[in-house]
Amino acid sequence: MTDFLSVLVSGVLVGTVYAYMAYGLGLIYGVLRVVNLAHGAFLTLGVYVTWWLHFTFGIDPLVSLLVTAPLGFGLGAAVERTLVFRLRDSPPVTTLLLLFGVWLIVRNVLYLVFGGTDRSLLTSYSLESLALGPVTLSIPRIVVSAFSLLGFVALAFVLKRTWAGLALRAVAQDRGAAALSGIPVDRVWATAFGIGSALAMSAGTLMSLFYSVTPEFGARFLLKSFCVVVLGGLTNIGGILVAGIGLGVAEDLTAFYIHTGFRDVVSFLVLVAALVMRRVDAEG
């Protein structure tokens, strides 16, 4: 029973990380109908900026959020204004390739600046854990889970309770109708891309608490983010949270009770199943 509880809790904690790194991808797809292949680049940048701030100035990763989130917003909005916006009426594959190009550029710049060595950081609480009866919980993972839930609440509040959120939802539902009713669609697009990128970079910051980073870091987690977004519903933030947790738990239980080697297979089985189910739904 102790083992089951340990694995279950670990799955929930990992799942909230998956959810946090997928929020931005879901938001951008929801509003712009763009699959942001540069998402992995923003995740990786988040880890590197955090590592650099910690290594150079000794800044705690959680404090770094004050830098990485606004930086992510600015970079994301700039990418949208200078690149994505120009291709707004092109076929989706054009934007897909463009953002893939952005990712490759960022990756290569990171290789030039930081090299290919694994970089990781150590804080006073990096290896701390909390014993709750027979179950041991990692403090950094609890912190990241708390931020994931906080991110979900904040995002839900913005989307449901603010004018900006209303505008985002309006553009997501019908760009033309939103424009006719006076919503500045161009600005909403930039805002959505900025928020999505800010979420990705801040996810990178939080992930730096337990993952090491190389310029390939984003590739490692981009596919996982896709799985979560597809499973949770492409535009549904609440669904993404539930899907992230569900995936984390499924992976950990599979790894423990069946075989550790099947851990990643779960993600892709889920992805395929979700895509097939959606197809059936659409046709039904």
Binding site: S10, E251, A255, F256, G261
Partner: peptide
């Protein structure tokens, strides 16, 4: 275990 696994907790519990 797979290279670049996203979590090793369940393996360590094992």
């Amino acid at each position: 275990f797979e290279h670049l696994s996203s979590d090793h907790t369940s393996l360590i519990v094992k």
